[in-house]
Nucleic acid binder design. Sequence first.
DNA 1: AATTAATATGGAACGCCGATCCAGAATGTG
DNA 2: CACATTCTGGATCGGCGTTCCATATTAATT
Lengths: 212, 212
Amino acid sequence: MIVDAAVALLDEHGERGLTFRLLAKQLNTGPGALYWHMTNKDELVALAADQVLGHAFAAAPRLGVGAGTELRALAIAVFDALDRHPWAASHVTAPATLANALRLLDRIGTLVARTGLPAERHFAVATAISYYITGVSAQIITPCATLDAATSRDAYLAQTAERWAELDPADYPFLARTTADLREHDDRDQFITGLDLLLDGLNTTADPPPPA
Amino acid sequence: MIVDAAVALLDEHGERGLTFRLLAKQLNTGPGALYWHMTNKDELVALAADQVLGHAFAAAPRLGVGAGTELRALAIAVFDALDRHPWAASHVTAPATLANALRLLDRIGTLVARTGLPAERHFAVATAISYYITGVSAQIITPCATLDAATSRDAYLAQTAERWAELDPADYPFLARTTADLREHDDRDQFITGLDLLLDGLNTTADPPPPA
DNA sequence: AATTAATATGGAACGCCGATCCAGAATGTG
DNA sequence: CACATTCTGGATCGGCGTTCCATATTAATT
């Protein structure tokens, strides 16, 4: 009940808007009562973030297609869940200790094992994918969470693009000619691009291409 | 000067240990004076984190080998720099606005352009790699930053591994048989494993394997 | 039904933090 | 030498996480 209320407050006011006083008022109680059920604010936020991961599981299709496809769908479901709760993105950590983080990593590992990769690489590859999913999601989503409600994401990107455009092309040849892409890009596509790159690498390693 | 002192304090006491009062005392001044030079604590940590990125550049070799190799070396240099300043890991964000983050992304983009990838994919691939580097580094390193000075990383991993071992193998088949890997793994190798997976995917896309 | 232990509450209080204020010192300018 | 600007640093404000503790509620035991 407490965690649900915390998630609601975090969704509404962002991370800095979650206060024990406010949460207590929302639940018609005092701050002291909350501390009977948890030790820390850190613990509360961790539990709230883990709950968001739980939403991702509920949304992810689990029908038995190829392992690669299912891995991809799972990753995208996590991204989407974090995108709906931006404050959570920077709080899903590894190695996993909380319930849903554990489930997620186990599911990834099971799927990786099904690709035919040699067993001694399962751990390294599974964690690499897990790290990509949560880490890159956090990178993409967190800036949006930091924004004031006033400035939209588009305005923020436009502003950044403008700064890039003002850079000296001699020092920043790449950025200077890429401002248009920055302004127009879609966060979700960007996440998926990298994901496919990673999964392609996985497939190449799993069944090496025939020698030319 | 302020940023340097902030970095020193962050290195010594972690993120929660950086205080305007403490920083002011360290510099023989008052908190008010600091606010003349910056607007926020957020801005201060952002600048401090960007400075750490600068260290990475200083350490990265820039000799003209293959673009892929240089990309790899640059990524590892960033990881190592963040590993030496764990508090910074969760504060390097994208899209880039600060000086060294801009330099990093531009460098990555320039190297990606050199791989022969079609131009319209440069932005997506470069940002994907950039996101991987900072995002996955943050995932791997941040837990270490949160640890009390008392508990070492090994103790922490051993503890987590024990929890995994206690899980029901029926519910968590993968984790239950992977505790040994967790206990023994090396963070840096783990980062590199995923990085190579990603770069492999990049190479495959850049020059597609000859049809069988 | 009465007694007592364990569990849970919630408001007041503590210490500390980010941030602001502002009188005045230092520095440069005509 | 006046004067505007830049810069300082200590006092102060409001608010936060957290703790404390007297009280209420529930469960277990006689």
